[in-house]
Design a protein around this nucleic acid. Structure first.
Length: 486
DNA sequence: ATGTTC
């Protein structure tokens, strides 16, 4: 048997791209890493594998604790982690969702081609940067009072539709149609609401960005046709989350759960795995608050997209409808959701935690929007400023292998601190412009250094593994034209 | 990720 040994953890090769840490000690299930050997080398560089083993100790975890090909260490759970915890006798854990609740990404199409932008990149990037709020702190597309924030938390994209910021098609092309009905705004603290109310429609900082891209490759023509993608077409990618509101929800419930469920926590190998038992008051409250933050993040991305349509209208002097600026799809990659899955021949309701992992439902699944039902759910995997991004579709093995999930991005290979020592923001920006014709504009040079292409894993390899496993299949590749970030 | 340190 082929094994991979690292720091006292041995992984057994189950088959190509599938590695297993056997159940051992207090682990309730085995752990699985879905990666090539090259990616596994990188994954084993930090605490990811130990964290993955730790998550296998959670009550009610089913089948395996999973790590996607882009996995790296996070708070308690790995980023790139999928954990399905039974909704009846298991638990729910804020660390399995992450601080940025419903961090996610959406792709908007256009009928413009790269030639239409030629020579106007600078003008476009300046206009986007001037009009789409970004960076740390406050300032969004809309400023709101408490009634508005409550409505957003309660109704998500339906609020945006009522207020004229969204069309019915925008909702149809969003995971969960942009609404989590299980939201309970009363479980979101005043402090969280206060932090969110002047951040509605804002990118934030870190790895969040808005990017104008061109489609460079199509790998599956029939699926690309169904998605309306073709070579040379311009698309817009928006990557952001629930800002200070989601962060505060995570902090609030970690503290509450640590306090009230210390007995459960004492049995777990890491304090960062704090979890509320299924059926407990805090499990219900956290789920309601998390769903509210999820609704907030969808509205956030919707308002950024709405503003982007306006900017394109001004720059190109045409209506957005005329430019075909339709939402392809919006995926969440930091969420937990009650879903029903087959577990050893039995249908079980599970809290599927996807932290840095994307839902990847296959063709025929009832939750895939009608327009894409025959080809599978679109998956959007952002890469770096220098390597581009991918569109995939849910693969036929995702339900049996990963509770309907795949990777979410390239994954970092160096810390932000290390990146700032390694790179200088202005040099990164100049090189991208002069060598790759990528126009970057950011609030802070440090952010550009932190997000330099060299800090990321090879997104091609991440996507190749997803495709080879049949959990998310390659559909198209894009390359950046303009990028704005905090 | 984050009013960038509980």
């Amino acid at each position: 048997m082929t094994t991979f040994d690292t720091d006292g953890i041995t992984l057994e090769k189950v088959r190509e791209n599938v590695w297993e840490i056997p159940q051992d000690g207090e682990m309730r299930v085995p752990a699985r890493v879905l990666a090539s050997e090259a990616l596994l080398e990188q994954i084993s560089d930090d605490k990811t594998l130990q964290q993955l083993k730790n998550t296998a100790h959670l009550p009610g975890i089913r089948k395996y604790a999973l790590c996607m090909p882009d996995g790296h260490q996070g708070y308690g759970f790995p980023v790139g982690g999928v954990a399905a915890l039974d909704a009846e006798d298991g638990c729910i854990s804020p660390g399995g969702v992450g601080y940025d609740i419903n961090c996610g990404v959406r792709m908007m199409k256009t009928n413009l081609t790269y030639a239409d932008l030629d020579g106007r990149e600078e003008e476009l990037v300046d206009a986007l940067f001037a009009n789409v709020p970004s960076g740390l702190g406050g300032g969004g597309v809309v400023e709101s009072g408490i009634e508005t924030i409550e409505a957003i938390l309660d109704r998500g994209m339906e609020w945006a539709l009522e207020e004229g910021y969204a069309t019915p098609d925008d909702l149809a092309h969003c995971e969960d149609e942009g609404v989590r009905p299980d939201s309970d705004p009363s479980t979101v603290s005043q402090k969280a609401k206060d932090r969110g109310k002047n951040q509605i429609g804002s990118l934030g900082s870190g790895n969040h960005f808005l990017e104008v891209q061109r489609v460079t490759d199509v790998f599956r023509e029939d699926v690309a046709d169904a998605y309306g993608l073709s070579e040379d077409r311009i698309v817009v990618l928006i990557h952001c989350g629930s800002r200070g509101l989601g962060h505060q929800v995570c902090t609030d419930y970690l503290r509450k759960i640590e306090k009230r469920h210390g007995d459960l926590l004492a049995e777990l190998p890491d304090k960062e795995l704090a979890a509320a038992p299924a059926g407990s008051e805090l499990a219900e409250e956290y789920y309601g608050a998390m769903c509210a933050a999820i609704n907030f993040a969808w509205v956030n991305r919707q308002l950024v997209m709405h503003r982007t349509r306006e900017v394109f209208e001004r720059v190109f002097g045409r209506d957005w409808e005329e430019m075909g600026m339709e939402l392809l799809y919006d995926v969440a990659h930091n969420i937990a959701k009650k879903e029903t899955h087959d577990v050893e021949g039995e249908e079980r309701e599970l809290y599927v935690h996807r932290k840095g992992a994307t839902r990847a439902f296959p063709a025929g699944h009832p939750e895939v929007p009608t327009a894409y039902r025959e080809v599978g759910q679109p998956i959007i995997i952002p890469g770096s400023m220098g390597t581009g991004s991918f569109v995939l579709r849910g693969g036929e093995h995702s339900m049996t292998e990963t509770f309907g999930s795949t990777a979410h991005g390239a994954g970092r290979v160096m810390s932000r601190t290390q990146a700032k020592n390694e790179f200088w923001g202005e040099d990164v920006r100049d090189d991208l412009r002069d060598q790759d014709r990528v126009y970057v504009k950011a609030q802070s040079g440090a952010t550009v250094a932190e997000e330099a292409p060299g800090v990321y894993k090879d997104v091609d390899e991440v996507v190749r593994v997803s495709d080879a496993l049949g959990i998310g299949d390659k559909v198209a590749r894009t390359f950046p034209v303009c990028n704005i970030k905090g």
